[in-house]
Design a protein around this nucleic acid. Structure first.
Lengths: 341, 341
DNA sequence: TAATTATTCGAAATGGTTTTCGAAATCACC
DNA sequence: GGTGATTTCGAAAACCATTTCGAATAATTA
């Protein structure tokens, strides 16, 4: 029941632990005979090196940490899938923690991962995170850090993102192209960079098309557990405040779906009375009615690329090479559906 | 940059490593003076015990493994959330692997986790898993194993499930109560127990109500990546094969949504021409139109309970107590919505 | 003062693997 | 047979924390 150790194999064969170790790792200074003997016995005894000991010796755990705001989320669960799959290919395991959009938790979790001595950390920030000392600490310890989607520009680490500003511009331009002239925006929380960028893209599209930017048309939602309800609420407010709006660009599909639900309830026809564009291309956006025009956000791809970058940096650190942070921007596309004309 | 070790603290204070270790752990045989000194220096140097060394000594990793068929899935991502949250509370980290509904991968992943020497393993089986030697191996190694949702009755470990049979019975009975007399069933893959149980519940409800069981009304779907399309396809077949069916009980919401999409396309009115009941209560089921009547499956709760059970067993093993496997059955409920009368 | 007890500490073993360095043994060649 | 080169192996240190057991000192009692 207790796992076999090198020592036991060594005693069995009357050779030293060192030789057994080297035989199993095909060191050139072990004869073919003993190598064969060792390997055979190791196999029959089902020897597996004790990971704890290997970790201690090699100072690496072949494990990475992932801190993510929410797990139950179409986009993020896709990212997780991408990371986990890619990591497994390279022999790395992934420890996943959920920050629940809480800065405090996020901080603790980074600490947990550092204590665990993971070989690298990947993170998408909680909305509330405004202080980055916990992330800088990771870098100071010489551990690779890759941020994705919800990033902080100020932290000098690698990042994988989409061009949120451009995507939002595209979305808004599409509303304009299909005849909307007074376009509202449900933006995300004040802090995360992509929420800001989407807002800026929206604004720029308006200006480029000589449409006035009206701050009263911008509504904020936290995009937390209550996303759907926030969509309902914001739509209600919007309909209450204005009667001339003919399009909305919404920060996230789930909020958009909430908004469309409220619009339907109040008899506002989508897309004829009100066109709607979401963001992220959640699966459900394609199956609701009317289906939702949105921006595709390649979650799995983002996860893969983020891990690949982290992997490069882990290798670099191992060779004492300096790492130069990279910003990888993935392509997105507008997916036209029934919620716009 | 390199983490501080006990040795460094010891040298700094001119005492032994042993004393430092004991001081930090409040052993009674260290004087208050030295304890204070050690603790202070440890704090200023930000000492954290080397997890690798601790693991090696204590023979435990404070880490558990989770193998799950799919991550991007409303129910499973909820389970993950429950597990991760509960584990963190108890000081455990979770390594997550996705089997992708592949027995081969699942087997490899169990091996990976055993090599990693996790303290316990949680798993929801891949559809294809018919051989359980990899799971029995876990038990033989004396590692706690908890299965949830997609389980194998034959493996003598703890399990957390819902009463699929009862839930399916409820769903079918509801169709009957609302006037359906010829009810089809889109069942899941042949193997996983819950797919079988749901089928049995469906069948029993029919018989209890003196409705004939007609095998030609039962369609199979794998419930993999193509769930939605399988819903479309099966609905198409059903409408082609039969013209007298007035209700369908469908194994999973996503398939049900696919089916409803096809029904809508072919002008079959839900619920009047055809009532539909799904299973799992995916979020999107509440926001589509018509909204989907379904069975609520408490994912987060299942994750929590599964971890709690695993935790108990880890503690038991540590104390050399025997573990007696438990089967925990969670309550479900029928959620009536617009897709049934 | 001698003997006993309580207090405080450290040497050393343990956990299992990896790797360096040097020793021993074998072989080749003149 | 002697020299040098090559092959094959093992002792031992290192990784770091934990814990047992015994030694030394200090305090107490007879």
């Amino acid at each position: 029941m207790e796992p076999v150790t090198l020592k036991q194999i060594a005693e069995e064969l009357n050779i030293s632990v060192a030789t057994v170790s080297k035989a199993l790792k095909d060191y050139p200074d072990v004869s073919k005979k003993t190598k064969a003997l060792v390997k055979e016995l190791a196999k029959t005894l089902n020897y597996k090196p004790n990971t704890f000991a290997v970790n201690l010796r090699t100072r690496e755990s072949k494990t990475i940490g992932l801190v993510i705001p929410v797990i139950v989320h179409h986009f993020f669960s896709n990212v997780i899938k991408g990371i986990v799959a890619q990591a497994e290919k390279k022999g790395y395991l992934v420890i996943i923690l959920q920050s629940n959009e809480s800065y405090e938790l996020e901080k603790k979790q980074i600490d947990l991962l550092l204590n665990q001595r993971v070989d690298g950390i990947m993170i998408s920030l909680a909305n509330g995170t405004a202080d980055f000392s916990h992330l800088k600490q990771v870098l100071e310890l010489g551990k690779p850090l890759v941020m994705f989607d919800k990033i902080a520009k100020i932290v000098p680490c690698s990042k994988v993102v989409i061009d949120d500003r451009k995507a939002a511009y595209l979305a808004t331009q599409h509303l304009i192209d299909t005849g909307c002239t007074r376009i509202a925006h449900f933006r995300g929380a004040l802090l995360p960079q992509n929420s800001i960028d989407r807002f800026l893209g929206y604004k720029k599209a308006l200006l480029d098309n000589d449409l006035p930017y009206d701050p009263s048309l911008v509504y904020i939602c936290e995009c937390d557990d209550r996303s759907f309800e926030e969509g309902l609420d914001n739509a209600k407010k919007l309909l209450n405040d204005h009667d001339d709006v003919d399009g909305i660009f919404i920060n996230t599909d789930l909020v958009a779906i909430g908004a469309m639900t409220e619009l339907a309830k109040q008899g506002v026809a989508v897309p004829n009375d009100m066109a709607v564009v979401g963001f992220s291309n959640w699966f459900m956006s394609s199956v609701i009615s009317p289906s939702l025009t949105t921006i595709n956000q390649p979650g799995v791809e983002m996860g893969k690329r983020a891990f690949k970058q982290l992997y490069k940096e882990i290798k670099a650190i191992k060779k004492n090479k300096p790492i130069n942070p990279k910003v990888i921007t993935l392509e997105t596309e507008l997916i036209k559906r029934e919620s716009t004309k």
